[in-house]
Computed example of a mutant assay.
Amino acid sequence: MSQRLPIVHARHQRDEGRGRVVEDVDLEFSNGERRIFHRVLAPGPGAVAVVPMLDDDTVLLVREYAAGVHRYELGLVKGRIDEGETIEEAANRELMEEAGYGAHRLDVVRMLSLAPTYMEHQTALVLARDLHPAKLPGDEPEELEVVPWKLADLGELVLRDEASEGRSLAGLFIVREWLAKHG
């Protein structure tokens, strides 16, 4: 299989309303096949998913209402990066808004994609350590429940119906491995 990227012959953007922009990309692959791919463009500078470590073994999760599945979901602190914010600034702001903590140490671990075959959107996975109480008003309609969870118990978390968000689950396992290698 060829590792050569397809040739882009043309790009056309269309606004589908409500901030959703789709780009039609005319591609030619190394075997001569030609296709038009539809790509959902990311609105704004992206998003963050924060893994706040209360101590070396305990992560803080938040339980919040998830309209897409109409239930309360247990997962990581997450949110959009505002225009002009760095990844670290957005992560710390979201942490203060959703969990009531700030972090003195923030490490961008890696980028996560949601559906890379058709979406441009990426989320920065950020490890937050050396936490301190700090609260900012957020945009949530109700206070979020903060739930401490042991990293050693991730196997139990993945089997719970209320923990289904892919970025949260992947982020927790990635950070657990990252911490094992980097301390």
Rank of each mutant, 00 (worst) to 15 (best):
residue 78 K to F: 15
residue 61 L to R: 02
residue 163 A to E: 15
residue 57 D to K: 07
residue 104 H to V: 10
residue 169 L to S: 09
residue 56 D to V: 09
residue 32 G to C: 01
residue 62 V to M: 05
residue 105 R to M: 10
residue 86 T to P: 01
residue 165 E to F: 15
residue 107 D to I: 11
residue 153 D to L: 12
residue 79 G to M: 14
residue 50 V to E: 00
residue 54 L to T: 09
residue 128 A to K: 08
residue 63 R to A: 04
residue 43 P to K: 11
residue 99 A to M: 10
residue 28 E to Q: 15
residue 50 V to P: 03
residue 141 P to Y: 10
residue 166 G to Y: 13
residue 149 W to G: 01
residue 143 E to N: 06
residue 71 R to H: 15
residue 92 N to T: 00
residue 111 M to Y: 07
residue 114 L to T: 00
residue 120 E to H: 04
residue 37 F to N: 05
residue 85 E to G: 00
residue 121 H to G: 10
residue 82 D to Q: 05
residue 126 V to E: 02
residue 155 G to Y: 10
residue 132 H to N: 11
residue 114 L to P: 00
residue 122 Q to V: 09
residue 59 V to C: 09
residue 34 R to D: 00
residue 130 D to T: 10
residue 119 M to L: 12
residue 166 G to W: 13
residue 70 H to R: 08
residue 29 F to D: 08
residue 162 E to M: 15
residue 166 G to K: 13
residue 55 D to P: 13
residue 94 E to R: 09
residue 61 L to M: 01
residue 112 L to I: 00
residue 29 F to P: 05
residue 81 I to S: 02
residue 147 V to L: 11
residue 125 L to M: 09
residue 67 A to G: 01
residue 163 A to N: 15
residue 157 L to K: 04
residue 72 Y to Q: 09
residue 39 R to L: 03
residue 121 H to P: 01
residue 161 D to C: 12
residue 157 L to R: 05
residue 147 V to E: 12
residue 35 R to Q: 04
residue 163 A to Q: 15
residue 153 D to E: 14
residue 59 V to N: 06
residue 71 R to T: 15
residue 147 V to A: 11
residue 81 I to W: 04
residue 64 E to N: 11
residue 34 R to W: 00
residue 82 D to R: 00
residue 81 I to E: 02
residue 74 L to S: 06
residue 31 N to H: 03
residue 60 L to M: 07
residue 69 V to Y: 11
residue 111 M to W: 06
residue 149 W to P: 01
residue 111 M to S: 07
residue 95 L to G: 05
residue 79 G to L: 13
residue 36 I to N: 05
residue 70 H to P: 01
residue 80 R to A: 11
residue 106 L to G: 04
residue 35 R to H: 05
residue 158 V to Y: 08
residue 38 H to M: 00
residue 88 E to V: 12
residue 146 V to L: 07
residue 44 G to F: 01
residue 143 E to Y: 05
residue 159 L to V: 12
residue 61 L to S: 01
residue 97 E to V: 07
residue 55 D to F: 14
residue 122 Q to A: 09
residue 114 L to F: 03
residue 126 V to F: 03
residue 139 D to L: 13
residue 43 P to C: 10
residue 99 A to D: 09
residue 146 V to C: 07
residue 160 R to Q: 14
residue 86 T to E: 05
residue 158 V to N: 03
residue 91 A to T: 00
residue 62 V to P: 05
residue 137 P to Y: 12
residue 45 P to E: 07
residue 48 V to Q: 09
residue 79 G to T: 13
residue 101 Y to D: 07
residue 116 P to W: 02
residue 103 A to H: 07
residue 131 L to I: 10
residue 83 E to G: 08
residue 44 G to Q: 02
residue 156 E to W: 10
residue 167 R to V: 15
residue 118 Y to T: 13
residue 79 G to Q: 13
residue 151 L to Y: 02
residue 44 G to K: 01
residue 35 R to I: 04
residue 92 N to E: 02
residue 72 Y to E: 11
residue 169 L to G: 08
residue 157 L to M: 03
residue 146 V to D: 07
residue 139 D to H: 13
residue 89 E to V: 02
residue 33 E to R: 08
residue 45 P to N: 06
residue 166 G to C: 13
residue 146 V to P: 08
residue 144 L to D: 04
residue 152 A to K: 06
residue 73 E to H: 10
residue 133 P to I: 12
